[in-house]
Design a protein around this nucleic acid. Structure first.
Length: 620
RNA sequence: GCCUCGGUAGCUCAGCUGGCUAGAGCAACAGCCUUGUAAGCUGUAGGUCGCGGGUUCGAAUCCCGCCCGGGGCUCCA
């Protein structure tokens, strides 16, 4: 339905002649209505009573603002090229009239099916002229999705702590004394208790360190990445991808958008509680992916494989995955609407194979987080499953907890309610005691059937595999969030905030005592950089003290001051951020130390000019 | 999305019981200084006070709507 809405001083109209056979009865006399909101209305194909009601609701909200209570519904076909049949249109126009009257509006209606002559005087204020489109199709979609969301809310679950000795206790009976973060996670998940009032520290840091920032020109939750942030993000992406390749996953790339009306996809949408970005194309409604599942399932469905190739592992780094989270949920690097997520699926023949594969992947996920220097003390494990699955697979679940080595939060559902039977995630607890999931893995028992994914078993029969869904690191942005929050936490405890050396945008900064030594500083910078180390030098006309201060606020790992003494000596005074002390080292010793500490980690060159004087400032 | 707080120079903020030409620090730019491990000195420039409307003789200041951000609800990688 399309409505052109005009706040008018008056309108005069007069039916001239019938345009269609089914036109209403009407007298050919002029009618004048003053101080009225005129609704030129075109009823479109597919409109129903719900649309009529919604149209009036929207109009009524608007009338309240204008402090007007009088409307004229004026059938006007010319607003649309997809008009409904006249009979249906007349019915809806009448429905609108009735609905409006029932809502206390003084309602007039011009006759339907007539060629009318009219004169209108529209008010001049900015809100006087409005066009609106009310569509039933969109509304249905929204409702469909929100039903999937609501379904999740209704599901009942119970909470436990599963100890490494295999004993399970009610959350209330667990002694949290040595498990503060686990307690925070449990509170966060169960009682939804919130304490924080302040801005999350990582948001301040992401700006100050010139990593990333909000982009007001986009939708909320879509970030801009500055060179240093892009570098950090890219290194994490490379690192995770490398570990996935070593694990034996085949990297693929799939589209970011999919047809809303594809049968398998629309069915899956209903089972996944997330809101989508919707894109209208010429002849299709498309949605932006919220994970790599669609692309990989469609890809693997068309592939041919047998039990001999299982477990089959495919991997994609989704840049981006989109989830149109409610605006109030979006926060800095903790949650976006567009985020980068490594997504790895493994197809397995049976539950026995799943269990083996699951153990391997748990190990991998821990390895990935360890690569970011997030230790086991920094995150907590939560496992979710149905009661039946628990009773049938007790040993398996306990083996996961034993491997993790710390008590684990358990959410137990009375019955199976999702497409998965078990999932776990590592949760990071931040400075506001909020928990966010990082790595995760789950056992999917539905989607192979839904997407017709089959393999050939030993007997030559087609079988549906079980599918594991894993994000080995969780969202890449969120990993950076965890690193920044952790650094802040350490700073509060009197330690130095720092990034892992391999992720540090500048690993070594050279500072000449005066511009006389600029050339030497450059020479040393270059000889360090040759070794796949990110080094730069500060050639700006500032005092040395100031340059050192800035190097510290940039969290640079090693700072070296170059003056006459250094030119004359083979030893360099290396200021080590971790200790704050100056260590006398030969250049080669420093290079060796950095290469040793960043061994097995990806490297990318400095993302900015080596001379600081040549750099723009991205954030004040 | 709802509730709530906020948006003033590139950044952090002051001014906001309506009334002089809207201020400060940092950053930028120009100059001086040529430096030994966390902020050298002087000067210059920089503002549709988030956007639109209203009230008023007069609006950064009061009112309404919208946009963006923080917190809460809710939700997830």
């Amino acid at each position: 339905m399309r409505i052109l809405q005009l706040h008018s001083n008056y309108i005069r109209y007069k039916p001239i002649e019938k345009e269609i056979k089914t036109a209403e009865q009407a007298k050919k006399i002029e009618r004048r209505i003053n101080e009225v909101v005129v609704l030129f209305t075109a009823v479109e194909e597919g409109d129903d009573n719900a649309v009529a009601a919604q149209a009036i609701e929207e109009v009524r909200d608007f009338l309240m603002k204008l402090k007007v209570n009088k409307i004229l519904i004026y059938p006007y076909a010319h607003l649309s090229s997809h008009l409904a049949k006249p009979a249906a249109a007349l019915k809806l126009v009448k429905a609108m009239e009735k609905y409006a009257k029932n809502n206390g509006l003084e309602t007039y209606r011009a006759p339907f099916g007539w060629n009318k002559q009219f004169t209108i005087s529209v008010k001049g204020h900015p809100l006087a002229e409005q066009a609106r489109t009310i569509s039933s199709r969109e509304k249905e979609k929204e409702e469909k999705i929100s039903e999937a969301l609501k379904a999740e809310e209704k599901i009942k679950s119970e909470w436990y702590i599963l100890r490494t000795d295999g004993n399970i206790v009610q959350v209330g009976d667990f002694d949290f004394r040595h498990y503060e973060n686990l307690e925070k996670l449990a509170k966060y998940e169960i009682s939804k208790e919130r304490v924080s009032q302040q801005m999350p520290p990582h948001i301040m840091l992401m700006k100050k360190l010139e990593l990333a920032d909000y982009e007001p020109g986009s939708d909320p939750g879509n970030l801009r990445w500055y060179p240093k942030g892009r570098l950090v993000k890219s290194l994490i992406e490379q690192f995770v991808t490398k570990i996935m390749q070593e694990y034996g996953a085949m990297e693929v790339e799939t589209p970011v958008m999919y047809d809303f009306n594809h049968p398998s996809l629309s069915d899956y949408l209903d089972r996944f509680p997330a809101r989508q970005y919707i894109i209208k194309s010429e002849d299709k409604d498309l949605f932006l992916r919220f994970a790599a599942c669609f692309g990989q399932f469609l890809l693997i469905r068309d592939a041919q494989f047998s039990y001999r190739q299982l477990p089959l592992r495919i991997y994609e780094l989704t840049r981006y995955s989109f989830r149109r989270e409610k605006s109030g949920e979006i926060a800095g690097l903790r949650r976006q609407r567009a985020f980068t997520m490594p997504d790895c699926h493994a197809l397995c023949s049976n539950l026995e194979q799943v269990k083996k594969e699951f153990a391997i992947r748990l190990e991998l996920c821990m390895k990935v987080l360890e690569g970011f220097e997030l230790k086991k003390e920094d995150y907590e494990l939560a496992i979710r499953f149905s009661k039946d699955f628990y009773n049938e697979n007790l040993e398996f679940i306990i083996s996961l907890v034993k491997r993790f080595g710390k008590p684990v939060l358990i959410e137990m559902f009375k019955e199976k309610a999702f497409y998965w039977v078990l999932k776990w995630e590592f949760n990071f607890v931040d400075n506001q005691d909020k928990a966010s999931a990082l790595s995760t893995d789950q056992i999917d028992v539905e989607n192979a059937v839904r997407y017709s994914i089959t393999y050939i078993d030993e007997n030559g029969e087609k079988q549906h595999p079980l599918i594991l869904h894993c994000s080995p690191s969780g969202g890449v942005e969120r990993c950076i969030y965890a690193l920044l929050e952790k650094a802040y936490k350490e700073q509060k405890m009197g330690e130095v905030p720092i990034l892992p050396l391999w992720l540090s945008p500048t690993q070594v900064r050279i500072i000449p005592v005066s511009d006389k030594f600029s050339r030497d500083a450059e020479r040393i910078t270059k000889s360090i950089s040759k070794n796949s180390i990110r080094a730069d030098f500060d050639d700006r006309p500032l005092t040395m003290q100031k340059k050192i201060r800035e190097a510290e606020t940039e969290w640079i790992n090693y700072v070296i001051v170059i003056g006459q003494k250094e030119i004359n000596s083979i030893n360099l005074p290396v200021r080590d951020r971790l200790t704050g002390k100056i260590r006398k080292m030969k250049l080669q010793e420093l290079i060796d130390e950095i290469l040793r500490k960043t061994k097995d980690k990806p490297f990318s060159p400095l993302p900015l000019p080596q001379r600081l004087s040549q750099r723009p400032q991205f954030h004040g």
